[in-house]
């Protein structure tokens, strides 16, 4: 790890001031990706701006048909939250299946989606639930937020403050973990909100993506059988030591079916 300066601002304004006033600052929102990268000397920010003391970034609040989770809420807190479990149990289950207990007690919702790892779980939940990401300056719909591998619509100095999830009628998440890293090799989040169904896939491609053919089929028949014969093309999917694109394409259908089953 290279040397850096560490800051714990108390307010969003202070954090923003630090962001604009330093050479190569980075926001620290749990650090479950950033810190290992720094330890391997693959990242060398001049300053780390830890958001853990910033007010207004925590808390889980339900208001009618929307559940709002603060950007600095840890995965373990989401998993254990009665409000999340009642409103969107699939989201609590997703959070409870991220990494291991150490990761879940440090990693945060905002940190995860800002990083947008192609194998992270939260992007699938956000996209399938048509969440709205709030920042220090605007609101961004999930469809516009996730742009590709480790890319988002965030400006360089923009700070996520929270995410608003519309409460679905039914939702389910099924993950096939990479056996070594336990990241999602394929994770599929299925949500029926109102009369619309959204299916979001993480792990399989260079970024989270939706499967319109499955969404259409599930809108008229919300059953595993309805999508059993729908597959995504393997072209463009990820390939690595653990799974080929073809295998990942198979898993998309299998995990989508299991997500639907878990939502029933």
């Amino acid at each position: 790890m290279y040397e850096f300066d560490y800051h714990t601002p108390q307010t969003i304004d202070d954090a923003r001031a630090l962001l604009s006033g330093r050479d190569d600052p980075k926001l620290l929102a749990g650090g479950q990706t950033l810190l290992p990268t720094m330890k391997q000397r693959l990242a060398a920010p001049s300053d780390l701006i830890d958001l853990r003391k910033v007010t207004g970034l925590d808390g889980i609040t339900g208001a009618g048909d929307t559940l709002r989770i603060g950007a600095m809420v840890r995965h373990a807190a989401v998993a254990a939250s009665d409000e999340v479990r009642q409103a969107i149990p699939a989201l609590a289950a997703l959070a409870g299946g991220i990494g291991d207990p150490l990761v879940r007690h440090r990693g945060t919702l905002g940190g995860s989606i800002a990083n947008n790892d192609p194998s992270a779980d939260y992007p699938a939940g956000c996209l399938a639930l048509a969440a709205t990401i709030s920042t220090d300056r605007r609101e961004i719909g999930a469809d516009e937020f996730f742009l590709g591998m480790f890319e988002t619509a965030l400006e360089e100095d923009e700070i996520i403050t929270g995410v608003a999830f519309p409460v679905p009628r039914k939702a389910g998440y099924a993950k096939f973990p990479n056996p070594a890293s336990r990241y999602a090799m394929v994770g599929v989040f299925v949500a029926q909100t109102g009369n619309a169904v959204r299916v979001a896939v993480t792990g399989a491609g260079p970024g989270v993506f939706r499967v319109p053919a499955m969404e259409t089929a599930l809108a008229s028949d919300f059953s595993a059988q309805a999508i059993a014969d729908i597959s995504v093309p393997s072209d463009g999917l990820l390939e690595d030591l653990h799974g080929s694109a073809e295998y990942r394409a198979n898993l998309v259908t299998v995990m989508a079916k299991r997500a639907v089953q878990s939502a029933l």
């Binding site: 056996p179 070594a180 890293s181 690595d240 030591l241 653990h242």
Partner: peptide, 9 residues
């Protein structure tokens, strides 16, 4: 290729 616990299971 399997140089860490992320890839070596």
């Amino acid at each position: 290729l399997s140089g860490s616990f992320m890839d070596y299971c």
